[in-house]
Design a protein around this nucleic acid. Structure first.
Length: 628
DNA sequence: GCCGTTTTCGGCCCGACTGTTTTCAGTCG
């Protein structure tokens, strides 16, 4: 079935080896050590190192060369002398001695077995030593023959579950995109809420932290119906929801099931008094929680999913809200998006957590389509929808001619479209100036919410003209420079499929036109979030070029498209890129997708100051690349 | 394996569920 990932491709050696690959090799070594029943703390170090490597914004391969500063790797928490040498070996040879040694003993396909439900390292090791089982096919055959029944602690029930598990694994081995998971969470929550006495349902886990993908769904439920003496009825209600495909487990206050698409859902019903502790616990991340519990212990406290307790007398210190728990540990409240044990605890202690960006910080959305190309609404409709959402300016950026399937515009149409955009913008401005029309009322209300102290809003709503151009194979754009010079915003997507090096191409594209517009990169087409494949386009190369040339970089908020990961966003900030978050809306409803993009920005610790479309329009326009 | 400094060794997070157990190991989150 699925090919093993353990054989690193030869091209991945040397400086080309990226952090994701490096992290995977370390993580696989940890799994092999687990099967080998090695010291659990040693295993944990490998896991921790893998996490640390994956979190780095700089390419570690460049720090692992013989002439690099040997201290650079050691500066990363979780990387000590031994691990630094491992990384150097991996970069130089594609492997390392410990890994090779373990691979002499165990087959790489055994790692795949660990992904099956109910299979841990102990079981995998036993299957290997007792029955020489090393891959899924052999395991399935043995299970069907009944061979497993001869082994300790393995009965018919375990065997049946395993065979089912193998089937599921083959059908669906991947994770779910966050927007898909969120939709399911909302649907399930609606059904649970129909039970009387349930008033709060919060998705926890990676969904609440805003990860790009979710392995499963954690829903925490509370209300009078969840108190210990009556919870059984509510549990029954949840266990009998019509959308359940398979009921996996039903405990005192927990129900686990899968949906038909394979998504696993864990619902926990909790008394109000411990809801905060549970929310904190099940939101994670694991590493954040470990660090938090260590902190509790240092203070003579212990933290569990039920409460923060004082060790000496088991007195409850905090449990009802997350805020209480963090405060009791001398920390500021930490937003879920930051809970990855990447410095948030230290910052919370020193009161230096950033004021993370929120939706109402945004004033402009500079990438959207209309019926002129492949959008579903008119210029006016898009503008009114944007006004209704509190925006102060937008750009209409329909496709250019090379994207024929979208009814892309040639030069003539692009200019005519721009003329209409200006007309609509002027109409709106006129209505605003006269303080009349429903748009004005909505706008005024929004503005007052945002700036309660402003006596009178002075900024009229404005629509900027623009286009989303296509890049031809030679690196030029598919509309004339003279056309582009008359537009406010030009979006040029740098993507894969070109033979030149990406740095070369990026630089050429960005220089090829010299107009007073913003050029926005992004859209690494073909990116497969679910498979965790690396970007086809190497943003580590593109972002520095964009920063140097002073063009703006787009973070595309549409969940189905290719936004920048939180790591790339952090890198963009470090490089001083001008960042914009856009919806790429194709209809008015798409404007709400901005929330997807904001979550990633928050995970990257970004504030309103780190983006340029949080600025009033005049300031925004002045930060765009100046006319040469 | 890493970390810390009351360092150079000793510690490293916690509870529930499952299947198989007659008292618990292994897995999971």
């Amino acid at each position: 079935m699925q090919a093993s990932t353990i054989d690193a491709a030869p091209w991945a050696f040397g400086l080309l080896m990226d952090n994701i690959t490096l992290a995977r090799l370390l993580d696989e070594t940890a799994a092999l050590l687990e099967i080998d029943a090695a010291d659990p703390f040693r295993i944990r170090s490998y896991r921790r190192a893998a996490e640390a490597v994956e979190q780095q914004t700089t390419r570690l391969a460049t720090l692992a060369t013989p002439d690099a500063d040997p201290k650079a790797l050691l500066a990363i928490p979780g990387i000590g002398k031994g691990m630094a040498q491992n990384i150097r070996d991996l970069v130089a040879t594609g492997s390392m001695p410990l890994r090779e040694e373990l691979l002499q003993k165990y087959r790489p396909t055994m790692l795949e077995l660990l992904r099956l439900p109910g299979m841990g390292p102990k079981t995998v090791a036993m299957l290997h030593s007792a029955l020489q089982i090393a891959d899924i096919d052999a395991l399935e055959a043995a299970a069907k023959r009944g061979d497993l029944l001869t082994l300790p602690r393995m009965g018919q029930k375990f065997t049946d579950k395993l065979i089912k598990g193998i089937e599921d694994h083959r059908r669906n081995a991947s994770r779910f995109r966050i927007d898909v998971a969120r939709e399911h969470a909302e649907r399930i929550s609606e059904l649970i809420r129909q039970f009387p006495g349930i008033d709060t349902i919060t998705p926890a886990g990676s969904l609440r932290r805003g990860r790009e993908t979710c392995g499963d769904l954690d829903l925490l439920v509370t209300g009078p119906a969840c108190e210990a003496d009556v919870v059984a009825a509510a549990v029954e209600h949840v266990a009998s929801l019509p959308l359940i495909d398979k009921l996996l487990a039903k405990g005192q206050n927990k129900v686990s099931f899968t949906l038909r698409n394979g998504l696993q859902v864990d619902v926990r019903l909790l008394p109000r008094a411990s809801y905060g502790a549970a929310l904190q616990y099940f939101t994670g991340s694991k590493h954040h929680n470990v660090a938090l519990r260590q902190r509790a212990i240092k203070r003579g406290l212990t933290l569990s999913e039920y409460a923060l307790l004082r060790l000496e007398d088991n007195k409850i210190i905090a449990a009802e809200t997350e805020q209480d728990i963090y405060n009791a540990l001398d920390l500021d409240y930490i937003a879920p998006e930051l809970r990855e044990n990447c410095g948030e605890l230290e910052a919370a202690e020193k009161h230096t957590l950033p004021h993370l960006i929120v939706r109402s910080d945004l004033r402009g959305d500079l990438h959207m389509h209309t019926t002129e190309s492949d959008g579903g609404n008119s210029i006016r409709e898009m503008a009114e929808a944007a006004i209704g959402r509190g925006l102060e300016y937008i750009a209409i950026t329909d496709h250019s001619k090379n994207l024929a399937m979208t009814n892309g515009m040639d030069d003539t149409r692009a200019l005519a479209h721009a003329k209409r955009i200006r007309e609509v913008s002027a109409e709106l401005a006129e209505e605003f100036a006269a303080r009349r029309g429903p748009q004005w009322a909505r706008y005024e209300r929004r503005l007052k919410d945002k700036e309660p102290n402003a006596t009178e809003p002075t900024i009229p709503f404005r629509i900027l003209t623009g286009v989303e151009v296509d890049i031809l194979l030679d690196g030029t754009l598919d509309l004339e420079d003279a056309t582009l010079a008359q537009l406010d915003i030009v979006i040029a997507s740098v993507h894969s499929g070109f033979n030149q090096t990406q740095e070369e191409m990026t630089a050429r594209v960005l220089r090829s036109t010299e107009n007073p517009y913003v050029q926005i990169l992004g859209h690494p087409t073909g990116r497969k979030v679910l498979q965790r494949e690396p970007y086809k386009i190497d943003l580590a190369q593109v972002l520095p070029v964009a920063a140097r040339l002073g063009v703006a970089v787009e973070h595309n908020a549409a969940p189905a498209r290719s936004d920048l990961s939180d790591l790339h966003l952090r890198q963009a900030k470090e490089l001083g890129c001008k960042l914009i978050v856009n919806t790429d809306a194709h209809s008015i409803g798409d404007l709400d997708q901005i929330d997807h993009g904001i979550v990633q920005l928050r995970r990257a610790w970004l504030t309103a100051q780190d983006l340029i479309n949080t600025q009033p329009i005049d300031q925004f326009l002045s930060t765009l690349r100046p006319r040469p």
